[in-house]
Design a binder for these strands. Structure first.
Length: 583
RNA sequence: GCCCCGAUAGCUCAGCCGGAUAGAGCGUCCGCCUCCUAAGCGGAAGGUCAGAGGUUCGAAUCCUCUUCGGGGCGCCA
């Protein structure tokens, strides 16, 4: 609806510009908006106000001249000039009724568009290290990334969802020795478990499974030097861990070490996969960082950078000339000890995404990565890819509260509330909705007490209830012997109450909301819209009986209720929230 | 020191590309079920949009500075 009116205005402006020889440099975007106050009609444009100065005309006169040139359309019932020079447009009542019929006809496809023109987008999100269960912060990323992917898909993008598995590097080694030390304890060895190692309960569980399978065969080597490290630890936890890693790797050999490492990784990844799956989050692909090394992609990427003269050696390390692409400083890609950095993997990974044919690489990252963005973009550019093929959305932190008290979270210390715990407490629907009810770029305070209380504070029930109410209404209609007769245009003309008009307007806005949500990468717009729509529905439902004896009026109101139900369901589905038939 | 995010009703937050009288929920107070689900609805009270400048016909919205919060700045990932 909005697009059609936009078109009318563009024609008007083009016509006016041609008649008066308007300079081409002047922005003729009509800036069409929905009105907030029904007294101002349905749509308004400020174009006369904005053009008044460049054209040297009084805004109200200009508005009047433009109004006269708006083409005849059965969409528009009235055009008024108001206030300082707004042009207010009143949409013909029948246009809304037509929209309602179209909506019911379109069903689950209502709101979809081809706007994205099949642009290939890869959305990378969550990508948590497989060193422990997902916590509440990851849940926000999961809900956001999955909902955004759905919205982009609904607006005609070719979307591929991916989870990048950071399964290489030191963190995995720390997990490995954490498991191994617990395994030693399972064997009955009396050792001090280091503070710096992973404390979580799952570490012990993996260790016990290893013990059951391997008995003592993963500890058959001389452990005296290792035990000495543990009984007389260095001050730094990191140094301690490095020594333990070296000692365990030496004692077990690469093969033995990778038995532990693989067991730990698979156990944690399986848990993450299952957790996300239950949360309705299902990436199309899990991309292993190790596969970059094993498949040679990392090596090839570094080689390519070298061929392009973007690397140099200093202090025994290999550096990438990130400053040449606007980064603050150059960055290390190969450390003095010969190990490649996480950043090196990321250059290779992002380049690899481009070679898979994606037009847009959309990364959903934590806000703590903001300093990281320029260098990844620099990496892409240095590889010969356009810098704007990378788009990064930084999700602000979710802070957890228990009532007034902030819950400290640290993966390594094992002090966290897991996503799974959260889901079990508040339910998947509430969690999904709650996570996207705040804009991704704002801090989110997640109060467990409040979420656990299952009070009416949680807006998901409110929206779902509206959906269930319609379902109940339709059942009631059948049990009272009314037939579901599609409403004719003349039936629909019975919808004359202000509350009904408000609903019709709301329903016609839905496609615009989806479009806006896609443009701004903001599923929250959908969530906010659903709350507003549900509120309008509850209000209307309370004021006007649907199952009245008058056939025309009943058919019309049933159609309106079905329209509401359809839009609620479509919106909830995009957010990964169920639309229950009864509550 | 540099960078990112924020400050809107007692609390938690919406507020689109700058637009007409700044909204909702919770809480408080007063009402509504012999009637389609009361997980609902109606009404009342509640505001220096952190502060100060600036741009503009017009600023909660854009720019600058200040204050106060949250986070980040590694040959970690």
């Amino acid at each position: 609806m909005r697009a059609q009116i936009d078109q009318l205005l563009s024609e008007t402006l083009a016509r006016y510009a041609a008649e008066h020889g308007v300079d081409e440099s002047i922005d003729l975007n009509p800036q069409l908006e929905r009105t907030r106050d029904p007294k101002h009609g349905d749509f308004t444009t400020n174009i006369a106000l904005r053009l008044a100065k460049p054209l040297g005309r009084p805004p109200r006169e200009l508005a009047a001249e433009l109004s006269e040139r708006i083409p005849e359309s059965k969409l528009i019932a009235a055009v008024d000039v108001a206030g300082p020079g707004f042009i207010n447009l009143t949409v013909a009542a029948d246009a809304y009724l037509r929209q309602l019929s179209d909506l019911i006809e379109a069903g689950e496809t209502y709101g979809r568009s081809e706007w994205g023109a099949n642009r290939r987008v890869i959305v990378e999100y969550v990508s948590a290290n497989p060193t422990g269960p997902l916590h509440v912060g990851h849940g926000r990323h999961a809900a956001y990334g999955a909902s955004l992917s759905n919205i982009l898909r609904a607006t005609g993008h070719d979307v591929h969802e991916e989870y990048y598995v950071n399964d290489a590097g030191r963190q995995m080694d720390i997990l490995t020795v954490s498991v191994w030390l617990r395994y030693l304890q399972a064997l009955g060895e009396d050792i001090e478990f280091p503070q710096a190692a992973y404390q979580g309960e799952y570490v012990g569980r993996i260790a016990r499974e290893l013990h059951a399978q391997w008995e003592d065969r993963l500890a058959r080597f001389d452990r005296t030097s290792l035990l000495k490290i543990l009984t007389d630890p260095p001050d730094s936890g990191d140094v301690l861990l490095d020594r333990i890693i070296a000692a365990v790797r030496y004692g077990l050999g690469d093969t033995g070490f990778s038995v532990i490492s693989n067991a730990a990784r698979y156990a944690v990844l399986d848990d993450i996969r299952e957790d996300l799956d239950e949360f309705g989050v299902r990436p199309d692909n899990w991309y292993s960082e190790r596969s970059l090394t094993d498949g040679g992609a990392l090596e090839r990427a570094l080689q390519r950078l070298n061929e392009r003269d973007r690397l140099y050696v200093r202090d025994g390390a290999v550096w990438f000339k990130a400053t040449e692409y606007g980064d603050e400083k150059d960055r290390v890609v190969v450390r003095e000890n010969g190990a490649t950095t996480y950043f090196a993997s990321d250059i290779a990974y992002h380049y690899e995404k481009r070679t898979r044919g994606f037009d847009l690489l959309l990364d959903i990252l934590g806000a703590d990565h903001h300093g990281y963005v320029p260098r990844v973009r620099a990496g892409l550019q240095a590889m010969g890819e356009p810098g704007d093929s990378l788009e990064v959305r930084l999700v602000q932190f979710a802070t957890l509260y228990r009532g007034k008290e902030k819950v400290q979270m640290s993966t390594r210390a094992g002090e966290f509330v897991t996503l799974r715990q959260l889901r079990e407490e508040v339910g998947n629907d509430a969690a999904r909705f709650f996570y996207v009810s705040r804009s991704y770029d704002q801090h989110l305070d997640f109060d467990l007490e409040l979420a656990k209380a299952q009070s009416n504070d949680n807006p998901v029930y409110y929206v779902q209830y509206a959906h269930a109410r319609v379902a109940s209404l339709l059942k009631k209609m059948v049990s009272e012997g009314f037939s579901l007769t599609p409403a004719s245009r003349s039936d629909l003309r019975c919808l004359t109450e202000p509350a009904e008009k408000e609903l019709l307007v709301s329903l016609s806005r839905y496609p615009e909301v989806i479009h806006l949500a896609a443009t701004n990468r903001a599923p929250t717009h959908v969530a906010q819209f659903l709350r507003t729509l549900a509120a309008s529905f509850h209000s209307c439902y309370n004021a006007h009986r649907v199952l009245v004896s008058d056939d025309s009026l009943r058919n019309a109101r049933v159609a309106l209720a079905r329209g509401v139900q359809q839009v609620l369901r479509n919106g909830l589905t995009l957010l990964g929230v169920s639309a229950p038939e009864s509550m």
